[in-house]
Simulated scan of single mutants.
Amino acid sequence: MTVSRTTALHFGTLLVLIALFFVLPAYHVGAFSRIMVLAIYAIGFNLLFGYTGLLSLGHAMFFAAGMYGFGLSMNFGGLSVLPAFAVGVLAAGLLALGVGLLALRTIGVAFMIVTLMFAQTFYLVILYFGEYTRGDEGFIIQQAQRNLAGIDLTTETARYFAAFTLFAICFLAMARLVQSPFGKRLVAIRENEERARMLGYDVGRLKLAALVVSGLFSGVAGAAYAMLFGYVGASFAAVHYSIFPLLWVLLGGAGTTIGPLIGVIFMFYLIDISSSFTNAYMLVAGVALVLLTLFAPQGIAGTIRKRAVSWLP
Protein backbone atom coordinates (compact mmCIF):
# COMPACT_ATOMS: atom_id res chain seq x y z
CA MET A 1 0.00 0.00 0.00
CA THR A 2 2.84 2.36 0.85
CA VAL A 3 4.47 1.74 -2.52
CA SER A 4 1.28 2.60 -4.39
CA ARG A 5 0.87 5.81 -2.37
CA THR A 6 4.40 7.00 -2.99
CA THR A 7 4.17 6.07 -6.66
CA ALA A 8 0.92 8.01 -6.93
CA LEU A 9 2.55 10.99 -5.22
CA HIS A 10 5.49 11.07 -7.61
CA PHE A 11 3.46 10.62 -10.79
CA GLY A 12 0.79 12.97 -9.45
CA THR A 13 3.44 15.64 -8.95
CA LEU A 14 4.54 15.23 -12.55
CA LEU A 15 0.95 15.45 -13.81
CA VAL A 16 0.50 18.70 -11.88
CA LEU A 17 3.62 20.13 -13.51
CA ILE A 18 2.26 19.21 -16.95
CA ALA A 19 -1.09 20.80 -16.12
CA LEU A 20 0.58 23.99 -14.93
CA PHE A 21 1.91 24.65 -18.42
CA PHE A 22 -1.63 24.94 -19.75
CA VAL A 23 -3.09 27.08 -16.95
CA LEU A 24 -0.30 29.43 -15.87
CA PRO A 25 0.46 32.81 -17.50
CA ALA A 26 3.59 33.01 -19.66
CA TYR A 27 5.71 34.56 -16.90
CA HIS A 28 5.04 31.69 -14.50
CA VAL A 29 5.57 29.09 -17.20
CA GLY A 30 9.05 30.55 -17.68
CA ALA A 31 9.55 30.61 -13.92
CA PHE A 32 8.67 26.93 -13.59
CA SER A 33 11.08 26.01 -16.37
CA ARG A 34 13.82 27.52 -14.23
CA ILE A 35 12.40 26.01 -11.02
CA MET A 36 12.46 22.47 -12.44
CA VAL A 37 16.09 22.81 -13.50
CA LEU A 38 17.12 24.15 -10.10
CA ALA A 39 15.07 21.42 -8.42
CA ILE A 40 17.31 18.84 -10.14
CA TYR A 41 20.26 20.57 -8.50
CA ALA A 42 18.48 20.44 -5.13
CA ILE A 43 17.63 16.76 -5.62
CA GLY A 44 21.31 15.97 -6.13
CA PHE A 45 22.30 17.95 -3.05
CA ASN A 46 19.57 16.27 -1.02
CA LEU A 47 21.03 12.82 -1.74
CA LEU A 48 24.30 13.83 -0.11
CA PHE A 49 22.93 15.99 2.70
CA GLY A 50 19.45 14.67 3.38
CA TYR A 51 20.07 10.95 2.91
CA THR A 52 23.79 10.51 3.61
CA GLY A 53 24.29 13.22 6.22
CA LEU A 54 27.22 14.92 4.46
CA LEU A 55 27.06 18.71 4.29
CA SER A 56 28.94 20.05 1.28
CA LEU A 57 29.54 23.78 0.91
CA GLY A 58 31.04 23.38 -2.53
CA HIS A 59 28.29 21.92 -4.68
CA ALA A 60 28.32 24.93 -6.99
CA MET A 61 31.48 23.54 -8.60
CA PHE A 62 29.55 20.50 -9.84
CA PHE A 63 26.69 22.67 -11.13
CA ALA A 64 29.22 24.95 -12.85
CA ALA A 65 31.20 21.99 -14.21
CA GLY A 66 28.07 20.75 -15.98
CA MET A 67 27.37 24.26 -17.24
CA TYR A 68 30.90 24.95 -18.52
CA GLY A 69 31.33 21.44 -19.85
CA PHE A 70 28.25 21.99 -21.97
CA GLY A 71 29.00 25.56 -23.04
CA LEU A 72 32.71 25.20 -23.78
CA SER A 73 32.29 21.95 -25.68
CA MET A 74 29.71 23.65 -27.91
CA ASN A 75 31.62 26.88 -28.48
CA PHE A 76 35.12 25.44 -28.83
CA GLY A 77 34.50 21.78 -29.63
CA GLY A 78 31.69 22.32 -32.10
CA LEU A 79 29.55 19.65 -30.45
CA SER A 80 25.78 19.48 -30.85
CA VAL A 81 23.36 19.58 -27.94
CA LEU A 82 23.32 15.93 -26.83
CA PRO A 83 27.09 15.25 -26.96
CA ALA A 84 27.75 18.59 -25.24
CA PHE A 85 25.20 17.70 -22.56
CA ALA A 86 26.96 14.37 -22.00
CA VAL A 87 30.31 16.17 -21.71
CA GLY A 88 28.86 18.51 -19.08
CA VAL A 89 27.45 15.69 -16.97
CA LEU A 90 30.64 13.65 -17.32
CA ALA A 91 32.76 16.65 -16.28
CA ALA A 92 30.68 17.09 -13.12
CA GLY A 93 30.89 13.37 -12.30
CA LEU A 94 34.66 13.22 -12.76
CA LEU A 95 35.12 16.36 -10.67
CA ALA A 96 32.94 14.85 -7.93
CA LEU A 97 35.03 11.68 -8.01
CA GLY A 98 38.29 13.61 -7.71
CA VAL A 99 36.99 15.85 -4.95
CA GLY A 100 35.46 12.90 -3.12
CA LEU A 101 38.69 10.91 -3.08
CA LEU A 102 40.35 13.79 -1.22
CA ALA A 103 37.55 15.47 0.73
CA LEU A 104 36.15 12.25 2.19
CA ARG A 105 39.39 11.76 4.08
CA THR A 106 37.88 14.33 6.44
CA ILE A 107 34.64 14.35 8.44
CA GLY A 108 32.23 16.86 9.92
CA VAL A 109 33.21 20.52 9.80
CA ALA A 110 36.50 19.67 8.07
CA PHE A 111 34.54 18.12 5.17
CA MET A 112 32.48 21.30 4.85
CA ILE A 113 35.61 23.48 4.78
CA VAL A 114 37.45 21.26 2.30
CA THR A 115 34.53 21.22 -0.14
CA LEU A 116 34.26 25.00 0.19
CA MET A 117 37.97 25.34 -0.57
CA PHE A 118 37.67 23.13 -3.64
CA ALA A 119 34.72 25.19 -4.86
CA GLN A 120 36.61 28.45 -4.40
CA THR A 121 39.58 26.99 -6.29
CA PHE A 122 37.26 25.98 -9.14
CA TYR A 123 35.79 29.50 -9.17
CA LEU A 124 39.28 31.04 -9.36
CA VAL A 125 40.23 28.66 -12.17
CA ILE A 126 37.25 29.91 -14.16
CA LEU A 127 38.40 33.51 -13.64
CA TYR A 128 42.03 32.66 -14.46
CA PHE A 129 41.10 31.14 -17.81
CA GLY A 130 38.93 34.11 -18.67
CA GLU A 131 40.16 34.02 -22.26
CA TYR A 132 37.94 30.98 -22.73
CA THR A 133 35.37 31.30 -19.93
CA ARG A 134 34.94 35.10 -20.15
CA GLY A 135 35.20 35.20 -16.34
CA ASP A 136 32.50 37.11 -14.46
CA GLU A 137 31.02 38.36 -17.71
CA GLY A 138 30.31 34.85 -18.93
CA PHE A 139 29.23 34.01 -22.45
CA ILE A 140 26.09 33.37 -24.42
CA ILE A 141 25.22 30.17 -26.25
CA GLN A 142 23.63 31.26 -29.50
CA GLN A 143 20.02 30.40 -30.25
CA ALA A 144 20.98 28.54 -33.42
CA GLN A 145 23.18 26.18 -31.38
CA ARG A 146 20.41 25.21 -28.97
CA ASN A 147 18.56 22.95 -31.34
CA LEU A 148 17.77 19.31 -30.66
CA ALA A 149 16.55 17.10 -33.53
CA GLY A 150 14.96 20.11 -35.21
CA ILE A 151 13.38 21.39 -31.97
CA ASP A 152 14.27 24.96 -31.04
CA LEU A 153 14.93 24.77 -27.30
CA THR A 154 14.66 28.56 -26.96
CA THR A 155 10.88 28.55 -27.40
CA GLU A 156 8.72 28.66 -24.31
CA THR A 157 7.03 25.30 -24.96
CA ALA A 158 10.20 23.40 -25.85
CA ARG A 159 12.08 24.87 -22.88
CA TYR A 160 9.33 23.95 -20.44
CA PHE A 161 8.95 20.37 -21.59
CA ALA A 162 12.69 19.82 -21.91
CA ALA A 163 13.06 20.99 -18.29
CA PHE A 164 10.10 18.82 -17.32
CA THR A 165 11.54 15.74 -19.04
CA LEU A 166 14.89 16.11 -17.30
CA PHE A 167 13.23 16.80 -13.97
CA ALA A 168 10.89 13.81 -14.32
CA ILE A 169 13.79 11.47 -15.08
CA CYS A 170 15.85 12.74 -12.14
CA PHE A 171 12.86 12.89 -9.77
CA LEU A 172 11.77 9.32 -10.47
CA ALA A 173 15.34 8.02 -10.54
CA MET A 174 16.03 9.53 -7.13
CA ALA A 175 12.74 8.17 -5.74
CA ARG A 176 13.79 4.71 -6.90
CA LEU A 177 17.38 5.11 -5.71
CA VAL A 178 16.54 6.09 -2.13
CA GLN A 179 14.23 3.07 -1.81
CA SER A 180 16.91 0.71 -3.10
CA PRO A 181 19.40 -1.16 -0.88
CA PHE A 182 21.97 1.48 -1.80
CA GLY A 183 19.68 4.24 -0.54
CA LYS A 184 18.92 2.35 2.66
CA ARG A 185 22.64 2.01 3.33
CA LEU A 186 23.11 5.73 2.90
CA VAL A 187 20.39 6.38 5.46
CA ALA A 188 22.10 3.92 7.81
CA ILE A 189 25.31 5.95 7.48
CA ARG A 190 23.40 9.15 8.19
CA GLU A 191 21.76 7.71 11.29
CA ASN A 192 24.83 6.00 12.77
CA GLU A 193 28.01 5.74 10.74
CA GLU A 194 29.86 3.59 13.28
CA ARG A 195 27.03 1.08 13.48
CA ALA A 196 26.86 0.92 9.68
CA ARG A 197 30.59 0.18 9.63
CA MET A 198 30.16 -2.52 12.28
CA LEU A 199 27.45 -4.15 10.16
CA GLY A 200 30.05 -4.63 7.45
CA TYR A 201 29.18 -1.80 5.07
CA ASP A 202 32.06 -0.15 3.22
CA VAL A 203 31.20 3.32 4.49
CA GLY A 204 33.98 5.10 2.59
CA ARG A 205 32.96 3.63 -0.74
CA LEU A 206 29.27 4.33 -0.13
CA LYS A 207 30.01 7.96 0.73
CA LEU A 208 32.11 8.33 -2.40
CA ALA A 209 29.34 6.80 -4.52
CA ALA A 210 26.80 9.18 -2.95
CA LEU A 211 29.03 12.17 -3.71
CA VAL A 212 29.58 11.11 -7.31
CA VAL A 213 25.87 10.49 -7.94
CA SER A 214 25.07 13.82 -6.27
CA GLY A 215 27.64 15.51 -8.50
CA LEU A 216 26.15 13.88 -11.59
CA PHE A 217 22.67 15.21 -10.74
CA SER A 218 24.14 18.66 -10.14
CA GLY A 219 25.94 18.41 -13.49
CA VAL A 220 22.67 17.56 -15.22
CA ALA A 221 21.15 20.71 -13.70
CA GLY A 222 24.11 22.88 -14.76
CA ALA A 223 24.17 21.54 -18.32
CA ALA A 224 20.38 21.91 -18.54
CA TYR A 225 20.57 25.52 -17.35
CA ALA A 226 23.11 26.38 -20.05
CA MET A 227 21.16 24.49 -22.68
CA LEU A 228 17.77 26.00 -21.92
CA PHE A 229 18.67 29.55 -20.88
CA GLY A 230 21.74 30.06 -23.04
CA TYR A 231 24.07 31.62 -20.51
CA VAL A 232 27.26 30.38 -18.82
CA GLY A 233 28.89 32.54 -16.13
CA ALA A 234 31.27 32.37 -13.18
CA SER A 235 28.58 33.59 -10.77
CA PHE A 236 27.10 30.07 -10.84
CA ALA A 237 30.34 28.76 -9.32
CA ALA A 238 30.37 31.34 -6.50
CA VAL A 239 29.72 30.52 -2.83
CA HIS A 240 26.09 31.58 -2.83
CA TYR A 241 25.26 28.91 -5.40
CA SER A 242 26.55 26.34 -2.93
CA ILE A 243 24.35 27.84 -0.19
CA PHE A 244 21.17 27.95 -2.28
CA PRO A 245 20.65 24.15 -2.52
CA LEU A 246 21.16 23.89 1.24
CA LEU A 247 18.42 26.47 1.79
CA TRP A 248 16.10 24.79 -0.69
CA VAL A 249 16.52 21.39 0.94
CA LEU A 250 16.16 22.76 4.47
CA LEU A 251 13.00 24.64 3.53
CA GLY A 252 11.44 21.79 1.58
CA GLY A 253 12.50 18.97 3.87
CA ALA A 254 15.83 17.15 3.92
CA GLY A 255 15.59 13.43 3.35
CA THR A 256 12.30 13.64 1.43
CA THR A 257 11.91 13.11 -2.30
CA ILE A 258 9.39 15.93 -2.78
CA GLY A 259 11.15 18.39 -0.46
CA PRO A 260 13.70 19.80 -2.95
CA LEU A 261 10.98 20.82 -5.41
CA ILE A 262 8.88 22.40 -2.65
CA GLY A 263 11.91 24.27 -1.32
CA VAL A 264 12.85 25.69 -4.72
CA ILE A 265 9.28 26.82 -5.43
CA PHE A 266 8.97 28.39 -1.98
CA MET A 267 12.30 30.26 -2.15
CA PHE A 268 11.88 31.30 -5.80
CA TYR A 269 8.51 32.93 -5.28
CA LEU A 270 9.40 34.33 -1.86
CA ILE A 271 12.33 36.21 -3.43
CA ASP A 272 10.33 37.07 -6.55
CA ILE A 273 7.44 38.58 -4.59
CA SER A 274 9.50 40.31 -1.90
CA SER A 275 11.89 41.84 -4.48
CA SER A 276 8.95 43.75 -5.94
CA PHE A 277 8.51 45.53 -2.59
CA THR A 278 12.06 45.93 -1.27
CA ASN A 279 15.70 45.65 -2.25
CA ALA A 280 16.30 43.74 0.99
CA TYR A 281 14.59 40.65 -0.37
CA MET A 282 17.32 38.35 0.92
CA LEU A 283 16.56 39.63 4.42
CA VAL A 284 12.96 38.52 3.92
CA ALA A 285 14.19 35.12 2.76
CA GLY A 286 16.46 34.91 5.81
CA VAL A 287 13.63 35.73 8.21
CA ALA A 288 11.43 33.08 6.54
CA LEU A 289 14.21 30.52 6.89
CA VAL A 290 14.66 31.37 10.59
CA LEU A 291 10.93 31.06 11.24
CA LEU A 292 10.73 27.74 9.43
CA THR A 293 13.76 26.49 11.34
CA LEU A 294 12.09 27.44 14.62
CA PHE A 295 8.59 26.17 13.92
CA ALA A 296 9.19 23.52 11.24
CA PRO A 297 12.79 22.33 11.71
CA GLN A 298 12.22 19.34 9.43
CA GLY A 299 11.13 21.54 6.54
CA ILE A 300 7.73 21.74 4.89
CA ALA A 301 7.54 18.15 3.60
CA GLY A 302 9.30 16.78 6.67
CA THR A 303 6.80 18.47 8.98
CA ILE A 304 3.86 17.19 6.94
CA ARG A 305 5.32 13.69 7.17
CA LYS A 306 5.79 13.97 10.94
CA ARG A 307 2.39 15.43 11.75
CA ALA A 308 -0.01 14.08 9.17
CA VAL A 309 1.29 11.87 6.35
CA SER A 310 3.67 9.35 7.86
CA TRP A 311 4.14 7.45 4.57
CA LEU A 312 5.50 10.51 2.75
CA PRO A 313 8.81 9.41 1.19
Rank of each mutant, 00 (worst) to 15 (best):
T303W: 10
Y269G: 14
V232I: 09
G259H: 04
V287Y: 12
R205I: 06
I273M: 11
L199Q: 10
S276P: 05
Y241M: 03
G233F: 14
G215N: 04
R307H: 02
A209G: 13
V232Y: 02
P297Y: 03
L250Y: 04
P245S: 07
L246G: 06
V220D: 00
G204M: 11
L247Q: 04
D272W: 00
L294E: 09
M198A: 14
A238F: 11
I262P: 00
V220A: 02
R195A: 05
L186G: 05
K306V: 05
T303S: 14
R185C: 02
D202S: 10
R205S: 12
A223P: 04
G204A: 15
V290P: 12
T303Q: 13
F266D: 00
N279A: 13
D272Y: 03
A285C: 06
T303F: 14
Y201P: 06
K207N: 04
M267T: 04
R190W: 05
G255P: 05
A285I: 03
S218C: 08
R307I: 11
F244E: 08
I304Y: 08
F236N: 07
D202P: 04
Y281F: 13
S214K: 13
F182T: 08
V249P: 01
D202L: 12
A296I: 06
V290F: 12
A254S: 02
Y225W: 06
Q179K: 10
A226K: 00
A210T: 05
A224W: 04
Y225L: 03
S242K: 04
L228W: 01
A238R: 14
E191F: 06
V264I: 04
Y225R: 08
I300Q: 00
R305W: 02
M198E: 13
G222V: 08
Y281C: 03
G230K: 09
L261C: 12
A209W: 04
G252N: 04
I265G: 01
F182D: 14
L186T: 03
L291T: 04
G259A: 13
M267L: 08
I300A: 07
F295G: 08
A288S: 10
V249F: 00
G299V: 05
G183M: 02
T278M: 07
L216R: 07
N279I: 13
G219H: 10
Q179Y: 09
S274K: 11
L292C: 13
L216F: 15
L250Q: 03
V284H: 06
